[in-house]
Each structure stands twice: as structure tokens, then as C-alpha cells.
């Protein structure tokens, strides 16, 4: 399948391990995934008031550029990017006034002539044609978890992993529509196809504190602790997720958790694409284990997945 790839800002700096492992896994699975040649920030949060129409422009520009590249769908692994792109697209499809105003902005888009003399900017109205798919959706709907399971070269047998969804992947369900918002199963099915043992725990879709970790760090520490403690109590040896911000709250924040909760024991956190790349036997240089705050390599060595 041919699909455009939108990595998003965090993947190019703080979590290059998510970017690298996604690209390597896609290559191993023969997905024709090409990064958009030009992209901007997606805006990170969907505009929540009716007046903030300008905050929809970056998403719509990205989606319109996907079409310019000749593709009809775009994929991303960051839960925030997925949420904003998908919701902005739905806003344009559902609301004729927003659609009209977005197109008025796109029409004014011009390449900067000093840098780009040759390109003639050809305006084409955007009416929500681009499909936004999370990388997990490609694995589930295009490849299929059964096929994936057959393509795995190194089964991660005996690794007990707690799947963590967080908020942006699932909610609001009528706009995001990836899985059931209260009882999702896509990460569980994914983990089983890699051979992992799935750890069920009640806080898999509870918020980790999100970007409150900047303005109210203690609230994020408490929220992350609630989630990790529950995962550990249910027997998890590791946690997996897809959002770079959840990763920051769950991985880096374990230092703060240890200061507040003495009985807490640390647990490694993986991006789902790292486990995927590991199971597909991809070269280890893409994993970026050194980027992790809680080093996952001792666990992987103990299980025999790393030498």
C-alpha cells in the first residue's frame, strides 16, 4: 500500500526512536510509506472554541499536501497528530462554513518566490478527501494481525506488556473512531500478534496528565503513578504506548514518582513500533534504547530478545 507519512514535531527531536522504529517497521512490512516533503506542526490540540478557526489551517494544509503528493491517505504514530488531523478533517467534511473558510486560506497559500521560482502553485479545493489513518490501523485493517503474526521473525514470547492507550487515540469517539473508547482492543490484538502476553489493567484509557506536566507537574506525576502502579499490580513487566507525551509522562516522570511514592518500582516503557521492529528482526540501531530514561535493555536481555 502507498501512504504519506506525517511524523510530527516531537518525533524529529525528543523521540527520534519512535520515528526511526516506525520507518524501519514499515519498510520490513513492505509498506510504501513516504514522508511528506513539506510539513508543519499540526497544532497539537484541536481548537475547542468555535471562534478559533485559524487553528484548523495547519492540519488542513497538511492534508491538502498529501493529495498534492498523489496519495489518498496519511499515517502518523503520534496520538496528538492523529487526533488533530482526524478531527480537523471531520470538521471540514461536516461544516460547509469551515470548509469554505479553510479553502479561502489555502487559496492564499503561495510558495515564497525567492526560494522557489519554478513551482506554479496550483490551487485545488480541499473537501476532506484525505484519509487519516493511525499506523496501528494499517497493521489492523490493511495488513491484518494474523498476517502480521506470520511475518514476525522473533516472537516476543513471555514478555508481559500492559497496553496503554491514553486519551487522544480514543476520544472523542465520534470524531476519532479508532476503537471502543471504554474497552479498546487494538493494542491488545497487536501485542498478541507479536507473541507478547497481554496484561489487562483498568487504567489503560485514563489520562496520564498530558501537557499538564508543564503547568501542573505534580498532577501529572500523580496521574502517571496511578496508571503505572495499576499496570505493575496486574503483573506488567513493561508498558507500551503510541504517544510521545504519554511516553514522557510515563518514562521520564518515574523519577518524580519515586520521590513521592517510595514503594514504587520502575518499569520500562516502549513505543509500540519498537516492539514491532524488534519482533520483525529489524536492525537494533533504530530502537534508540539510549533515549529511554528507564533502560529497557536489561529486561530484553533477560528475556533473550537482545544479545
Amino acid at each position: 500500500m502507498k501512504v504519506s507519512y506525517y511524523p510530527g514535531c516531537t518525533l524529529k527531536d525528543k523521540t527520534t526512536n519512535l520515528d526511526d522504529s516506525t520507518k524501519a517497521a514499515a519498510e520490513a512490512l513492505d509498506i510504501d510509506m513516504v514522508e511528506l516533503p513539506e510539513w508543519t506542526c499540526c497544532g497539537a490540540t484541536h481548537p475547542l472554541t468555535e471562534e478559533k478557526i485559524i487553528n484548523l489551517v495547519p492540519q488542513i494544509r497538511i492534508l491538502s499536501n498529501v493529495r498534492t503528493e498523489g496519495n489518498d491517505s496519511v499515517t502518523t504514530t503520534c496520538a496528538f497528530c492523529y487526533n488533530t488531523l482526524k478531527r480537523a478533517n471531520k470538521a471540514v467534511i461536516d461544516d460547509p462554513i469551515k470548509r469554505q473558510r479553510m479553502n479561502a486560506f489555502l487559496k492564499d497559500d503561495k510558495r515564497i518566490p525567492e526560494y522557489d521560482k519554478e513551482t506554479v502553485y496550483d490551487f485545488k479545493e480541499y473537501n476532506g478527501e484525505t484519509k487519516v489513518v493511525h499506523f496501528l490501523e494499517i497493521l489492523r485493517d490493511t495488513i491484518g494481525f494474523e498476517t502480521l503474526s506470520n511475518r514476525v521473525t522473533k516472537k516476543l514470547e513471555g514478555l508481559k506488556v500492559a497496553p496503554y492507550y491514553g486519551c487522544q487515540l480514543l476520544r472523542p469517539p465520534e470524531e476519532v473512531d479508532l476503537d471502543d473508547p471504554e474497552n479498546p482492543s487494538i493494542l491488545e490484538d497487536f501485542l498478541r500478534s507479536l507473541g507478547c502476553e497481554v496484561v489487562n489493567f483498568p487504567f489503560k484509557s485514563e489520562c496520564c496528565g498530558s501537557y499538564l506536566s508543564l503547568s501542573a507537574p505534580d498532577a501529572a506525576t500523580r496521574a502517571s503513578h496511578t496508571i503505572l502502579r495499576s499496570a505493575l499490580k496486574n503483573g506488567a513487566e513493561a508498558v507500551t504506548l503510541s504517544c510521545p507525551l504519554c511516553y514522557y509522562n510515563m518514562d521520564k516522570r518515574q523519577d518524580n514518582i519515586l520521590k513521592l511514592y517510595a514503594d514504587f518500582s520502575t518499569v520500562p516503557v516502549f513505543f509500540f513500533t519498537q516492539l514491532l521492529a524488534l519482533a520483525l528482526g529489524v536492525d537494533e540501531s533504530v530502537m534508540g534504547w539510549n533515549k529511554h530514561h528507564i533502560d529497557p535493555t536489561p529486561l530484553l536481555k533477560e528475556k533473550g530478545f537482545l544479545s
Partner: peptide, 11 residues
């Protein structure tokens, strides 16, 4: 902090 957290907070 991840970039997305900064953008969200300032928004």
C-alpha cells in the same frame, strides 16, 4: 519536554 506539550500548553 516534548514539543507537542509546549504547543498545547501555550495554546
Amino acid at each position: 519536554a516534548p514539543q507537542q506539550a509546549l504547543v498545547s500548553t501555550f495554546r
